[in-house]
Design a protein around this nucleic acid. Structure first.
Lengths: 135, 135
DNA sequence: CTTGACCTTCCAGTTTACTGGAAGGTGTAT
DNA sequence: ATACACCTTCCAGTAAACTGGAAGGTCAAG
């Protein structure tokens, strides 16, 4: 069954840190292309497929929806001709990513400021920890 | 009905760029505290409430789940004593935000690289835009 | 030649985060 | 007084992204 260096769905799932069910689901919605099968119908994945899956996983963790990820992948998939349309799209994506980074920086700053303000208050009056709702 | 400078749900929704329904939903799941009512039962919101709502809106756009936002708000809500527990939590949040920023930078870099690679290819061979699947 | 860990499809259920609609009360404007 | 845009609760439905389970085929090992 060793079909070159292709992986079955379980191994692909392990490498991309996804559930096999999720991979089938991604295929169903066309996020990943049908990848080839063994004669007995088992899906086969190569390194490219696994890295695509891993990319999806990672982008998701960054808060992108599958629809957004689909768009980004589509950009990556446009062979080799960038034409203006694609260039504009990529620049838009980059722009929105930059915005996102800026807002995360802001959020980070607000948390750090919060902590600093507290630390000052603490320095002024030593006190005990009040109740904390279960995190 | 002008109850000081309090707003009805519709106006609060407009200012926080949310649907009134969504605000009621947030109250239902305890993301925002019950905010006071008119004698006739209309919810009232002050600037603090609106900014909390706007914060939720923004954090969501950054890809945080309501569960994560709940945690962040809880940190903000811990009156004035930071105690180690809360400090650790804030530092964890800041850490995960930094990670997220780093990964976004990476994603941005990979898109920029993609574009550059294309531009080089384009320079080498002038060509027409091939088909593009509907974005 | 059977056990066990894979794989397949299909279909239904879950979680998260809303969103819509009905039925009815409120408040100001004409 | 009646229209109109608000507001209320309650309950049901939706979309996105899985996730579980049944029923059954496949393959290497013992």
């Amino acid at each position: 069954m060793t079909d070159g260096q292709k992986l079955l769905i379980g191994e692909a799932a392990r490498r991309a840190d996804l559930n096999p069910k999720t991979i089938r689901f991604y295929e169903e919605i066309g996020l990943i292309a049908p990848t080839g099968r063994t004669t007995s119908g088992y899906r086969l994945f190569d390194e490219e497929g696994v890295s695509r899956l891993a990319f999806i996983r990672k982008a998701q963790a960054l808060g992108f929806t599958l629809a957004e990820i689909r768009e980004i992948l589509a950009l990556r998939d446009v062979g080799s001709m960038p034409c203006d349309h694609v260039e504009v799209k990529i620049n838009q994506k980059v722009g929105s990513i930059e915005e996102r980074i800026a807002e995360l920086e802001q959020l980070k700053a607000s948390l750090t400021t919060l902590l600093e303000r507290w630390k000052e208050a603490e320095a002024a009056s030593a006190a005990v920890c009040p109740q904390i709702e279960g995190a």
